[in-house]
Structures are given as structure tokens and as C-alpha cells.
Design a protein around this nucleic acid. Structure first.
Length: 386
RNA sequence: GCGGAUGUAGCUCAGUUGGCUAGAGCACCUGGUUGUGGCCCAGGGGGUCGUGAGUUCAAGCCUCAUCAUUCGCC
């Protein structure tokens, strides 16, 4: 059932419709509006790998990600600022969300160290040592000209102790407040999102949400998921946190996930998603289709003249055969990366756009059920109790 | 024609003084990949050790013959 929005958002976000817990909304940024739920292609280093900006626009991408850590290291946020900011530098005039680099400090360098002041880490490019503080990371993102800035946070691995996680939640909250202080409301056109953490302890997740939502952020992210935990745990935490987040602010599930993860996230009331899965898997030969995953490496496609996905109308599916796509992949042709990425991005963008439409039309439950039938094993993994 | 070298998995090769169901890398086949190092990880199939004979309890390894490839010299 579609319910009219009970409360128009006070800030940049307007809730347009609800269907169960799923939402459809509109997020206004300095570079234009974003219709939510939305999937945001990841363009870490100023480029969504293998696809050009006009391709993204043609696919209907409304907003892309950049990464403060990567762009700080190369080419440098000041250099980007001198080029007029990331939008002008990359010739992308739609919204850009920048991640803070907290996750990279966690995942890339084994030699990162978190202290009250910030995180020290070694560059994965040249081993040089750097200190990121919440204030510095806001500064980097301002230099980049980001539309949506993420606070610096500490993401803890699956298996981290309760004691460490509890302390880490406190640190992430204090860092979020320092970020807000470094970028007060109306200091500029950019939005600032806080990131909730708490590992896999529901009560710590609650603490994180309560501490952060007591303050004036433009949106709230759910961080620290898909870090090696069983899928059922991911979704248990997601459901727990999403239910606690304020209705009038956008919710962003960071780095997740598969098509079913995303649609399930939408069913919990999440509005924004990013994931490297469509682009990374495209480069590794796993393609998402209306019939499920398809590994283009497989021998059975060697002489398959049919399209990758008969139900897809992307450039790749309109133009090329599975046999050709398999050949391109196996020979390491650069075109393989581009065609596969275009298709996977088309799939994810269409999937989330379709979910939005389903919410607006009050048929989201059926939309989600159809996807669960497509991925029965994954759906079972989600439900499994631990 | 003479002399030397080399023949082990599709490819490039390792296999100690003869000693369990002959190994590696790459390739091939099948999975995986969740706030991105165009990577990486896991599993799998595949060899009458050029051929024939001999020595030995036992031969990829030692002996003889033979075939092939290759280098050098007439």
C-alpha cells in the first residue's frame, strides 16, 4: 500500500511515498536532485572504471561516488581544487558523494592506527605516512567540491571484540561531531552525513544511532556491514539499525551489495546504496542479468550468438553476442571491461529505479518477491539464524 | 656424413646418489569477489616420462638401439 508522505522533510530530503517500510523520496543537492532509492556507481579515483561520463548519464546515473583517501593521494585534493573542483575536473555536473577514507584506512593498509586525534596510515601507492583527522577529511572533501560529504569513521572488522567496538563507537561519534563543527550548517552548499557503526552488537548499534541522530546531520549512513560476516547477520543488523533512523533524513547503506541485498535494504527503508560489485564483477566476468548471475567465462557461451540478457536494452545487450563478450573477456581486451561494466551498471540502476517505481505504485512487496525467486540460495542465507 | 645437446601435462620446465598413487608456473575447466590496487582467492581435469629392448627387488633417472628436434664442423 502506498501511503502519502506524512511529513515532508525539513531539510534537503523530501519523503514522497511509502510502501511498507520502503520509501521513495527526493534529495536535493548543490548539483541537482536525486530520486531515491538510488544506486550510486563508485568512481573512487575520479572515474567509474571503464565507463565515460556520457555513458553514465545515458544509463541514468544520478550521482556517483568519489573517495577522499584516493583523491588525496592522487592527484591531490588541492590540485583538484585548482582545476575548479571534482565536477569540473572530471566533467561530471551531476551530484557527487565523497567517501571519507575511513574504510580505506581499515581495508587497504594493514598498518593504520586509530587514535583520538585521527587515523595514521601508510599510502598503498608509495608507503608514505599520513594522518587523517575528521577536520582534515572535511577539508579534503570541500576542496573536491563534494555535494555529499561523509564523516571520518572507524569501521571495525567482523569478529572485533565488544569492548573494542564500544570504544570505537564513541570515537566515531566524537569524530562525527568534530566534522560537523568543522563544517557548520550553511558553511557551504554541501551536505554532511554521519556514519553509524557498532559492529555486530545490536545495543552498540543502537547507541551509535542515538548518539549521532541527536545531532544535526543531513543524512545517516549505516557503515561496517559486509565486512566478512554471514549474510543473515548483515541483514539482522541492517533491519535493526534502519528501524531506528529518523524518517525525515536520507539513509545510506554503505558498500552493499548484491541485487537482493539492495532490494532488501530498500524494504527496510534505506534510500541510498553504493557498491563496487557491478563494476568490479564486470571486470572479472560475472554479469548480472534478469535471470540471475551469468559467468561470461564459461565455455558454454563460446558459440552462443544470443544477447547477454534478452530482457536488457543496454548498449551491450543490444549490440553484441555472448560469444563475442566471452572472447573479449578471455583475451583481456579493454573493450570487455567497458561493455561488461556498462551492462552491470545498467542492471543495478534499472533494478533500483524499478524498485522506486514499485514503491510509488504500491507494489514493492511483489517486486522484492520476484527477486527472491531469482536468488533462492541468497534469500535463504539471509533468513538463516546464527 | 661426423661430433655435441635436448626429448617429462596444451606451453615453458623441475625432478637430488635409481625408492610410495611423477611435480611447478602458465594455459584450460568450475566457483568466489559487497564505502574498488584491471587484482586476488579456492577447487578441478590433464602425462603408457619420444619409441623399443636390457640391467635391477625397484628405472623419468643406468646401458644399448632407434626416431625426432637443434647447434657446430666437413
Amino acid at each position: 500500500m502506498t501511503a502519502p508522505a506524512s511529513s515532508a522533510g525539513s531539510g534537503a530530503f523530501t519523503l514522497l511515498a511509502r510502501d511498507g517500510a520502503a520509501r521513495a523520496g527526493l534529495l536535493r543537492t548543490a548539483h541537482g536532485p536525486v530520486e531515491t532509492p538510488v544506486f550510486m556507481p563508485v568512481g573512487t579515483g575520479g572515474s567509474v572504471k571503464a565507463v565515460a561520463q556520457d555513458d553514465l548519464a545515458a544509463l541514468g546515473a544520478e550521482i556517483v561516488l568519489g573517495n577522499a583517501y584516493h583523491l588525496f593521494l592522487r592527484p591531490g585534493d588541492c590540485l583538484v581544487a585548482r582545476r575548479g573542483g571534482l565536477h569540473r575536473f572530471t566533467a561530471w555536473d551531476k551530484p557527487i558523494l565523497t567517501d571519507s577514507g575511513g574504510y580505506q584506512a581499515f581495508s587497504l593498509s594493514g598498518l593504520s592506527r586509530f587514535t583520538e586525534e585521527g587515523v595514521t596510515f601508510r599510502s598503498h601507492l608509495d608507503g608514505s605516512r599520513h594522518l587523517f583527522t575528521p577536520e582534515k577529511v572535511v577539508g579534503i572533501q570541500r576542496n573536491l567540491g563534494s555535494d555529499i560529504m561523509m564523516v571520518l569513521d572507524e569501521c571495525v572488522a567482523y569478529g572485533t571484540s565488544r569492548a573494542y567496538t564500544a570504544a570505537s563507537v564513541g570515537l566515531t561519534t566524537r569524530w562525527a561531531l568534530r566534522s560537523r563543527a568543522a563544517y557548520p550548517r550553511n558553511a557551504g552548499p554541501a551536505l554532511l552525513f554521519a556514519i553509524t557503526q557498532g559492529g555486530f552488537f545490536p545495543d552498540l548499534r543502537t547507541v551509535s544511532v542515538e548518539e549521532l541522530t541527536a545531532h544535526d546531520f543531513d543524512g545517516f549512513a549505516i557503515g561496517g556491514l559486509s565486512v566478512g560476516e554471514p549474510k543473515s547477520l548483515l541483514h539482522a543488523m541492517l533491519a535493526h539499525v534502519a528501524a531506528l533512523l529518523p524518517e525525515d533524513k536520507p539513509r545510506y547503506l554503505m558498500g552493499v551489495g548484491t541485487p537482493l541485498d539492495i532490494v532488501t535494504g530498500i524494504s527496510r527503508g534505506v534510500d541510498m546504496f553504493d557498491c563496487v560489485l557491478p563494476t568490479r564483477n564486470a571486470r572479472n566476468g560475472t554479469l548480472f542479468t534478469s535471470r540471475g548471475r551469468l559467468n561470461i567465462k564459461r565455455r558454454e557461451y563460446a558459440e552462443d550468438d544470443g544477447p547477454l540478457d534478452p530482457a536488457c536494452s543496454c548498449y551491450t545487450c543490444r549490440t553484441f553476442s555472448r560469444a563475442y563478450l566471452r572472447h573479449l573477456f578471455r583475451s583481456g581486451e579493454l573493450l570487455s571491461y567497458r561493455l561488461n561494466s556498462l551492462h552491470n551498471l545498467a542492471y543495478f540502476l534499472n533494478l533500483v529505479r524499478g524498485a522506486r517505481q514499485a514503491v510509488l505504485e504500491g507494489r514493492f512487496a511483489a517486486y522484492k518477491a520476484a527477486l527472491e525467486i531469482l536468488y533462492p540460495e541468497e534469500a535463504a542465507d539471509m533468513r538463516e539464524r546464527n
